[in-house]
Design a protein around this nucleic acid. Structure first.
Lengths: 119, 119
DNA sequence: CTCTTGCTGAACCATGTGGTTCACTATAGG
DNA sequence: CCTATAGTGAACCACATGGTTCAGCAAGAG
């Protein structure tokens, strides 16, 4: 299913609030390491590490221009992550189909064993 | 936007391939710690840690029944994660609207500077 | 050439992660 | 009561993370 490592890196990159904010910031246009670091009151070194994590997940691309480094959103559209989650959603919604259906349905308001009633 | 900590824990929980497989397994019905650990050749203690991570992210709920512990999919539908990603997708698709539009469009097949031409 | 600015790399630190083993508790079954 | 089974908790380990400081190095500005 896709490639485990890709999902690993993508989800790990997204698991930090600072990095998610960086992505949002870059959505408004490219920025240098310094420009990214400033609103967080973070050292340049610290910010560079975050950018590196995002870059190795394909979420950001960077290019050295002059003495500055331009960071912008990368080619990774999060499609793999999105489709994994979508797969999980379907799985979740059908989780009553298994052997535990009986136990779960005992608590349901109606004993309509037919189609999923939008619950 | 939602709650940073929720997203942190959710994405972090998903960033491990073993845990994603556990979720898929639980999609087929509830299982005990031992049943979950067996296919991975992992110790019970190790599996319990994974389950704990998933549980504190709301992705799994557990209940002690007898000397066994039943694990099943939790109430967290991944909707927060899904909607954050969806937000990011929109942001990504509109990333040409910024000041960098010029540079990006120079590489575009046509120099149509009008509406977004479906890329 | 000199100075400032922006990034980079190494070293360090505290904490978290993914896993183990070992000792222990608690339940199920004779 | 006795024993096998299922999980739990503490301790440990190697390594990753998120951050720092400090010492460079490269590019612009004068």
């Amino acid at each position: 299913m896709v490639q485990q490592e890709v999902l690993d890196r993508t989800f790990a990159a997204l698991s930090d609030g600072t990095r998610r904010q960086i992505l949002v910031r870059l959505g408004q246009g490219p920025a240098s390491i310094g420009e990214l670091a400033e609103p967080f009151g973070m050292s340049l070194t610290g910010m560079k590490k975050h950018v590196h994590v995002l870059e190795s997940a394909g979420l950001v691309t960077t290019e050295k221009v002059g003495r500055s480094r331009q960071c912008r959103l990368g080619a990774e559209r999060l499609e793999d992550a999105m489709s994994w989650i979508a797969f999980y959603q379907r799985l979740w919604e059908r989780r009553l189909d298994g052997l535990d259906a009986y136990f779960t349905l005992r608590n349901a308001p109606e004993t309509d064993t037919g189609k999923d009633t939008e619950r």
